[in-house]
Measured scan of single mutants.
Amino acid sequence: DHIPWITAVLPTVIICVMVFCLILWKW
């Protein structure tokens, strides 16, 4: 059976995008 890697990667991607947007917003 396949491991849904997207389910494991998606939260990390969302957190990175939120942090990236927060850094851009504070500049």
Rank of each mutant, 00 (worst) to 15 (best):
D1H: 03
D1K: 07
D1W: 03
D1I: 07
D1Y: 06
D1G: 07
H2D: 05
H2V: 11
H2I: 09
I3L: 04
I3T: 04
I3M: 10
I3A: 09
I3H: 11
I3V: 04
P4L: 00
P4V: 02
P4H: 05
P4D: 15
W5I: 09
W5R: 11
W5H: 03
W5F: 12
W5Q: 14
I6L: 05
I6R: 04
I6S: 12
I6G: 04
I6F: 10
I6A: 11
I6C: 07
I6E: 15
I6D: 11
I6N: 10
I6T: 09
T7S: 11
T7C: 09
T7H: 05
T7V: 03
T7N: 09
T7K: 05
T7Q: 06
A8H: 13
A8Q: 12
A8G: 04
A8L: 03
A8P: 02
V9H: 14
V9K: 14
V9T: 00
V9P: 02
V9R: 11
V9L: 05
V9G: 04
V9Y: 01
L10N: 15
L10T: 13
L10G: 05
L10F: 06
L10R: 03
L10A: 04
L10M: 11
L10V: 10
P11E: 10
P11R: 07
P11A: 00
T12H: 12
T12S: 07
T12N: 13
T12Y: 10
T12G: 01
T12I: 00
V13N: 07
V13Q: 15
V13R: 03
V13P: 04
V13W: 07
V13A: 09
I14D: 14
I14C: 02
I14K: 04
I14A: 01
I14N: 06
I14E: 08
I15Y: 00
I15L: 03
I15R: 01
I15K: 04
C16H: 15
C16P: 00
C16F: 03
C16K: 09
C16W: 02
V17Q: 14
V17G: 05
V17A: 08
V17M: 03
M18D: 01
M18C: 02
M18R: 01
M18Q: 14
M18S: 00
V19N: 13
V19L: 11
V19G: 07
V19H: 14
V19K: 13
V19T: 12
V19W: 11
V19A: 11
V19F: 05
F20G: 07
F20T: 13
F20D: 15
F20N: 14
F20H: 02
F20L: 05
C21F: 05
C21W: 00
C21A: 06
C21N: 15
C21D: 14
L22R: 12
L22A: 04
L22P: 12
L22H: 14
L22N: 08
L22S: 13
L22K: 10
I23N: 13
I23K: 15
I23R: 08
I23T: 08
I23Y: 10
I23D: 13
L24T: 11
L24K: 11
L24E: 15
L24P: 06
L24I: 06
W25N: 02
W25Y: 06
W25I: 07
W25A: 15
W25V: 11
W25H: 04
W25D: 08
W25M: 05
K26P: 09
K26S: 07
K26G: 02
K26T: 06
K26D: 12
K26V: 12
K26L: 04
K26H: 06
W27Q: 08
W27Y: 14
W27C: 03
W27M: 09
W27H: 05
W27I: 09
W27S: 08
